[in-house]
Amino acid sequence: MPGTEMADDDDPRFGPGPFAGLLGFRILHADRDGATVEADPGPEHGNRIGIVHGGFLSALLDTTTGWAVQAHLPPGIGAPHVQMSIQYVRAAATGATLSCRGRCVSAGRSICSAEAEITQGDRVIARAVTSHAVLQAS
Rank of each mutant, 00 (worst) to 15 (best):
H29Q: 04
Y88W: 11
E115R: 15
A79E: 00
I86L: 12
I27K: 03
H81Q: 09
T36I: 05
V52F: 04
A114M: 10
S113E: 08
L135V: 01
G55E: 03
R103C: 11
T94K: 00
A114D: 14
I27C: 13
L23F: 10
S106K: 06
V69E: 00
G17Y: 07
R32H: 07
G76N: 02
D122A: 15
S85Y: 11
H132N: 02
M1C: 02
F14L: 14
C112M: 05
I125F: 09
T4C: 09
P74Q: 08
T130P: 07
R13C: 09
T4L: 07
D122R: 15
T65V: 13
I77R: 06
G21A: 12
Y88P: 10
I77C: 01
E5V: 13
F56H: 05
G78S: 00
Q83R: 12
G3Y: 02
V69S: 00
V52T: 07
T97S: 03
P41R: 02
I86V: 15
P75K: 09
A7P: 04
H72A: 03
I111C: 01
A128N: 12
D40W: 05
E44M: 08
A137P: 03
F25S: 02
M84D: 14
V134P: 04
M6K: 04
G102F: 12
F19V: 12
A126Y: 14
G34M: 11
E38W: 08
R90W: 06
M1P: 06
V52E: 00
T130G: 08
R103P: 08
G50K: 01
G102Q: 10
D31V: 05
R101I: 15
V89C: 10
D31L: 07
I49Y: 13
C100R: 15
H53Y: 06
A137M: 05
A92C: 02
D40T: 03
G95N: 01
V129R: 10
P2M: 02
L57V: 04
S113C: 07
T130R: 07
G42S: 12
L73W: 01
T4R: 12
P43L: 10
G95K: 02
T64E: 14
I77Y: 05
A59G: 14
N47C: 06
Y88V: 02
H45E: 06
A91T: 06
L98T: 01
F19H: 11
E44C: 05
L28Q: 11
G24R: 01
T94M: 04
D122I: 11
R90K: 10
E44V: 09
S110F: 00
V89D: 11
I49E: 04
W67V: 11
S58I: 11
A30G: 11
T64I: 14
G54K: 10
A96W: 08
A126T: 12
I27Q: 11
C100V: 14
G102W: 13
D33H: 13
F19A: 10
R127A: 14
T63S: 09
P43D: 07
Q70L: 02
V129G: 08
A128Q: 12
T130K: 03
G102L: 10
C100K: 15
R26M: 06
V82M: 05
L28I: 13
E5C: 08
M6R: 07
L135M: 07
G24N: 02
V129L: 11
D10W: 14
G108R: 03
T65R: 08
V105N: 13
R123N: 09
T63F: 03
H53S: 08
